[in-house]
Design a protein around this nucleic acid. Structure first.
Length: 473
RNA sequence: GCGGGUAUCGUCUAUCGGUCAAGACAUCGGUUUGUGGUACCGAGAAGCUGGGUUCGAUUCCCAGUACUCGCCCCA
């Protein structure tokens, strides 16, 4: 009590009189140490902006996503690949394209000590495409299907569902131009999201054509917007020069009005692109997938050709949440220096998926919990407990412990809180006799068995408990 | 990058321009011997940072930072 008082007043004194001065009195030395630590804390107590920890409590959601994605990857023939989070900046500049928000203002870009200009990947496809070329995967039988999960980085303003480091599950298929693949990937994306328990999913699809017809369309579009230039927002006036397609996407009222009357890309596709899109829609109809054609869907990466799509879920209030998106990029591999390779891919935002799973209270796979607790009492028993613990685990008996605690009482308290079915108790006497007490945590009864018979005895009890609980349900 | 809101123990939430900032949950310990759940007792634990106003600020004001909502954009 009195000590606390001294502490407080000392703290106050230091704070007011001499925040950083080191005084040498014994009573204040501890306090001074704390002050020093506090300075460090400013740096160490939290990660940089937009970065966050994924705590144990939410790992079940992430595990669920990992399980579902790797299961469906297997079903659809995707093989796992992991590429670096750091690549040469130019890889992204060339693939994603200048004039895009990602490249122009959202990329983590820096020079290494060796003088290389590198970037943290803002998306995964570019790196995977690079790996595809580098490792000569063009000789594999087509399509080459690759999937990956991992962090991507965008220097953007954080808010709910948006972080500077977020995680994506990414699927790419190389070497096949048939639109059935487009449909299959959309189907797969649908199954991933649905398997996670997320309902009210909607796809938005569009075709932005190939470079040939898009050029013609873009000229048409620019001509149209030029004539209405006065009615556009500041941003869009700039976009007219840099990225006119994105004006279609603008959320400003006046731009929406202008864009509504603009020529639509689907009406200006060349015959090849038109047939491709038509076929895709037929496949989607066949699959009964919930999709709408959104002629204004553009996407923020300039490597896309033909098919583009996004996945949305909507909540009770009708609010839309973007979960992921993708599209075809038939020219990317060639532009990066490979041979002509039509390809298509999509990415899902894992953080967003977790958010939706929480919102709909998705059912989670229940992680295995220890059903046995090992308690020890006394020096000899403590010494023997580590070996016994390993012995149990080797025999497939998931066992919890709290070896650091001394009293049996406190160990039992922990065991109870964990909800284990049985506790094994080894005391001085048992350690000498080579025996163990098996305590049933429900009935409270206990029996003593020899070390030899322990594993089988425990297994038998656990097995019986399962049968009982099944009957109970 | 732009605008709005918020900032108190690990968590949730009180209070206050002036003695020791309160409680709940959680954590740890105890209620005598080698036995858990309930109960009782106890301990540790907070005013984001920096300025200003004031005799005095956690409280009022400003800035920074973080979080949050909306815009932009996206996953």
């Amino acid at each position: 009590m009195a000590q606390a008082k001294v502490k407080k007043s000392t703290k106050a004194a230091i704070k007011k009189v001499a925040p950083k001065k080191v005084t040498k009195t014994a009573s204040s030395s501890k306090k001074v140490l704390k002050e020093k630590v506090k300075v460090e804390e400013e740096i160490l107590m939290q990660p940089p902006r937009g970065m966050r920890d994924l705590l144990p409590g939410e790992q079940p959601y992430w595990n669920q996503i990992r399980r579902v994605t790797s299961r469906l990857a297997l079903e659809y023939g995707f093989q796992r690949i992991d590429t670096p989070a750091v690549e040469y900046a130019n890889l992204f500049v060339r693939s994603i394209g200048e004039g895009t928000d990602i490249v122009d203002k959202e990329m983590y870009i820096f020079n290494t000590k060796g003088g290389d200009k590198v970037a943290l990947r803002p998306e995964m496809t570019a790196g995977i495409g690079r790996a595809y070329i580098q490792h000569g995967m063009n000789v594999l039988s087509k399509p080459v299907k690759l999937f990956s999960t991992g962090p991507v980085y965008r220097y953007d303003r954080p808010q709910e569902g948006r972080y500077r480091e977020h995680f994506q599950a990414n699927f790419d298929a190389f070497g096949e131009q048939d639109p059935i693949l487009d449909a299959q990937l959309i189907q797969m994306a649908h199954r991933v999201v649905q398997s996670l328990g997320i309902k009210n999913i909607q796809f938005q699809v569009n075709s932005i054509g190939c470079p040939k017809c898009r050029k013609e369309y873009q000229d048409l579009l620019v001509a149209y917007f030029e004539s209405k230039k006065q009615k556009l927002c500041q941003n869009c006036k700039k976009r007219l020069e840099t990225n006119p397609l994105r004006i279609l996407d603008c959320k400003e009222d006046k731009c929406i009005q202008v864009a509504a009357m603009a020529p639509q890309s689907v009406d200006h596709l060349c015959s090849e692109c038109r047939v491709h899109f038509k076929n895709l829609l037929e496949y989607l109809d066949e699959l009964d997938l919930p999709y709408v054609i959104n002629p204004r869907l553009v996407r923020g990466l300039s490597y896309y050709t033909k098919t583009v799509f996004e996945i949305w879920s909507s909540d009770e209030e009708g609010k839309k949440h973007s979960l992921g998106g993708g599209g075809r990029y038939d020219n990317l591999i060639e532009e990066l220096g490979g041979e002509h390779t039509p390809a298509i891919g999509f990415g899902l935002g894992m953080d967003r998926l977790v958010g939706e799973m929480k919102r709909v209270h998705a059912k989670l796979y229940i992680e295995q919990k220890p059903r046995v607790f090992l308690a020890q009492l006394g020096d000899l028993a403590k010494k023997k407990s580590l070996r016994l613990f390993a012995e149990l685990q080797k025999n497939g008996i998931l066992t919890a412990e709290s070896f650091g605690r001394g009293s049996l009482k406190s160990q039992l308290r922990v065991a109870d809180k964990m909800g284990v079915e049985i506790t094994l108790i080894v005391g001085q006497k048992e350690a000498l006799d080579e025996t163990v007490i098996i305590k049933d945590m429900v009935s409270g009864t206990q029996e003593t068995v020899t070390n030899e018979k322990l594993v089988n005895a425990v297994k038998k009890i656990l097995k019986n408990n399962v049968i009982v609980s099944h009957n109970g349900e």
